[in-house]
Design a binder for these strands. Structure first.
Lengths: 214, 214
DNA sequence: AATATTAGTGTCGTTACAACACTATGTCAA
DNA sequence: TTGACATAGTGTTGTAACGACACTAATATT
């Protein structure tokens, strides 16, 4: 078989998080100064989703993320030396969880979605599609909760929405809407920090699950 | 390499159409009495989408459909003798177009989505996912237009919605809604048949394109 | 005790959506 | 030719959802 006829399947992961009030993506450095998505070849006896999670963990130390299949990219010629079909996933996780688990920090970095570095292959397209999907899902699912830690304030949640949508939201209307979805639960705890009134902490009723609304 | 380690990629297509006031799917017969989706192995120099279209044409004679990638199925063990990753697509086409082009009619048949025969591999799961996606997209895109011929009456379009949703719709509200989307255009022609008032024919403003609404 | 800072709450006008019934225009048969 | 039949086509009104909008509450700091 010539290299071009060598068929390989890889899985790639677009890991999003909210950092510094921006939507950011985790990338791995290449030798040539460029960057790529975490991911790699799929082993023969491995599930696609496991492959994505395993590469993510091995390359970044990140585990326990919310993962969803995005799209499969297979245009011939997208890889210079072999026929490579990539099953792309996107992953969401709260910033807090990631600070703990990024072990191999060198060779890794976060980039704001608006300021991406040069990327390998068609990884820029993959990120663009993932971003579009995320923004769309925000409108009709509870996916934003995947960015939140176990307990969080409504103000923090609002800030996540505002960051992804790139627009300010009305506080009263936001609270009405998000509570009306019925997937939040007030705890008895308060978040005390700073010189101001403490905020009630909420938690997701079904933390792992993304639900459709209305 | 052992057979289980032989990696292969296939593309499979769930072709939907509205026939007999039901949502139906086109399937190909297997030797053992079961049925399968049209599709097959991807050639090394071929795009995924082309592969899907080409298998569809070769096995069913159908061309010119609306095609969209659905999901990639890759669980190890989903195929008994090899590691098979299937990139699944779904396709939509108006019934009129298909009656003309189904050449190899033997070995092929249409099945109502509610009465599927025994299916190969996980093809039943694939069809279920395609059906769910179609029903969801009906709500927020103009995808239903892909079931319509070039010119059609509003009553015919309403009947397509009613068939997929499985519920009757109010005529006046439906017409208001669908015209407000702004992607229909009245022609000067009328559809005359039967002993009743003829209906105005409409056409899609951008026939090949599925747009998001609101 | 005063100040600074974020948390938390309700009303009202507007708009979008659902429910609803009759007239219009053609064919066909007597 | 006329009457019966069948589907096409059309507006209004009540209701529910949504957006705009400003003040009080609770804590930390000085």
């Amino acid at each position: 078989m010539s290299p071009q006829n060598t068929l390989a399947i890889s899985t790639d992961v677009v890991l999003f998080s909210i950092r510094n009030d921006r939507l950011e993506v985790l990338l791995a450095a290449l030798d040539n100064g460029g960057w790529r998505l975490p991911g790699g070849g799929m082993a023969a006896d491995e599930d696609l989703e496991s492959s994505a999670l395993q590469h993510l963990e091995q390359q970044t130390g990140v585990t326990g993320v919310y993962l969803e299949q995005l799209y499969t990219f297979g245009r011939p010629g997208r890889h210079p030396t072999q026929r490579l079909v990539s099953v792309a996933y996107y992953a969401l996780a709260p910033d807090e969880q990631l600070r703990l688990r990024e072990r191999q920090a060198d060779g890794l970095d976060w980039f704001a979605i608006t300021r991406l570095p040069p990327l390998a292959l068609d990884h820029a397209d993959i990120i663009a599609m993932a971003h579009k999907r995320l923004a769309a899902k925000l409108a009709y699912t509870t996916i934003a909760l995947q960015f939140m830690p176990e307990r969080f304030t409504l103000s923090a949640l609002q800030s996540v929405y505002e960051t992804i949508l790139g627009a300010a939201l009305d506080k009263r209307n936001f609270r009405k809407r998000v509570l009306a979805m019925g997937c939040l639960e007030a705890t008895s705890e308060l978040d005390r920090h700073g010189n101001h009134r403490p905020a009630r902490l909420y938690r997701a009723r079904t933390p792992g699950k993304v639900e459709f609304i209305k």
